[in-house]
Amino acid sequence: MGDYLTTLLITVGIYTILSLSLNIIVGYAGQISLGHAAFWAIGAYSFAVLTTKYSIPFVEAAFFSIVITTLVGIFLGLPSLRVSEDFLAITTIGINFIVQGIFNSFDYFGGAMGIGNIPFPTMHGDMISNNTFLFITYLLVALTIIISYIFKVSWAGLASFAIKDDELAADVSGISPVIFKLLSFAIGSALAGLAGILYASFMGFISANDFSFPVSVAILAMVMVGGEGTILGPIFGAFLLILLPEFFRPIHSYRMFLYGILLVLMMIYQPNGFFGKKGIVWSMIKKS
């Protein structure tokens, strides 16, 4: 496979993990998050700092990065317990700006220069090939799908959906909103951390601008365009929103304009996403 195609597919894989992980927070537990790139950044930066500054081996660094991202995710999920949805949307935007600001301005995190020389995975002392990396990425995508599925059909998933539908009713039925909101933030951010490790290791260099607010918007758009709460939807959304710009390369300067228009039209005509309730793709599948 050509390098271009491999890189593209790895990017799609990383974004699939991101959109599925955000889907657990937004689609399952109903908590609006417009700051998912912050969790992605925390995963990537933890991994970068642990490997380059403290020379911790790859696998251990990856493990600790996920632990760190999960803990930060639970901490940053705390506002969801006290504020209503509009506040949460703005708070998570704020989290994105603050996290990006911190990574961008403290020398410990490389400042505006970013962090380079992040290790690529090795096997028996040799760097693995890009195709092997691609394979590992899609193994992790599969793992993310399995986790999403198990969570969705488990009692924990049902409890989350109940909170999403009616928090008060769920609460009086003995489902603790605190536990399940934080659980969804924990799982969602852990998986975002995983995507961060993949990204940092594959790129070898990260800077705070890679995780800016428009990235969070794009991840949320993948979830919403595909269909929040479904599993096929976010996967489809990630493929669509990453691959579409590649097809539109000849009209490159209209790309973002069309993206904006697409978001508006999708929300007006397909508010539940392609795979959601009344979504065109889902109705076609059901018919056939």
Binding site: I32, D86, M224, G260, M267
Partner: peptide, 16 residues
């Protein structure tokens, strides 16, 4: 629809 839909549409209008 839920407010998140309008919010995303609003961001879309802003980008466009």
């Amino acid at each position: 629809h839920s407010p998140i839909i309008s919010l995303i549409a609003s961001i879309g209008v802003f980008i466009a």
